[in-house]
Amino acid sequence: MRTKLLIAITFLAGCQANEAKPIPVTQPPAEAKTIVAPVIPSGELPELSIYQLDSTWTTQDKAEIKLDSFRGAPVVIVMFFGSCRTACPTIIADMKRIEKAAGPKAAEKTKFVLITFDPKVDTPDALKALEKKFELDSKKWTFLHGDEGSIREVASVLNVQYREVSEGQFSHTNLITLLDPNGVVTTKIEGLKQPIEPLVASLNKIAGDS
């Protein structure tokens, strides 16, 4: 009874806030069908581009980069932590399924980005070890290590919620997000082992495969 009441309160609180403040809708990407050669974006970023975040990250190869260095390519991005033995392999497997199902242009261009929640444990070296373990091509797959504030920030724009529930263990939303070449969120897959077709369809469209 008490639990039910609590749930009711929560829904009320959540729904009120949601009603008061509809989620700003991302403009759907322009139809790509008529575009022969995909346009390489330039100039000012769209207002909802996550590439406006100014944070600096270290890759598994110890390169210092900003998120806008991915500009120009479609990006499949997730947040994860390496010491999670269950969700981590599954989410990488889901990303590999996307890579495999993508059309030829998409497969060539798409970048796969994994941002860790756990900068203490998932050092660049540890991330490099993960890349090797999962046999990922470092030209396409980038692991990112950043400070806690930067991680919190990027999680907030990807709508990933997470909490460190004990030392090195994180409770988090499993979300695979497709960013268009300007860093605007396009399609998401929520949860693990979900159908990938809608995301792959968007990806192919962005890359000029369909």
Binding site: T3, L6, I7, T10, F11, G14, C84, T86, A87, R152, A155, S156, N159, V160, Q161, Y162, R163, V165, Q169, F170, S171, H172, T173, N174, E190, G191, L192, K193
Partner: peptide, 27 residues
């Protein structure tokens, strides 16, 4: 860390998504 308020369900759970993502799980 306003966006940490999920949820009991963690990465290991793959049950009802709504329940794990939102309020019920938290209660």
């Amino acid at each position: 860390d306003f966006n940490s308020s999920i949820i009991s369900s963690d990465n290991r759970q793959s049950g009802d998504k709504q329940e794990s993502k939102f309020c019920g799980g938290a209660a």
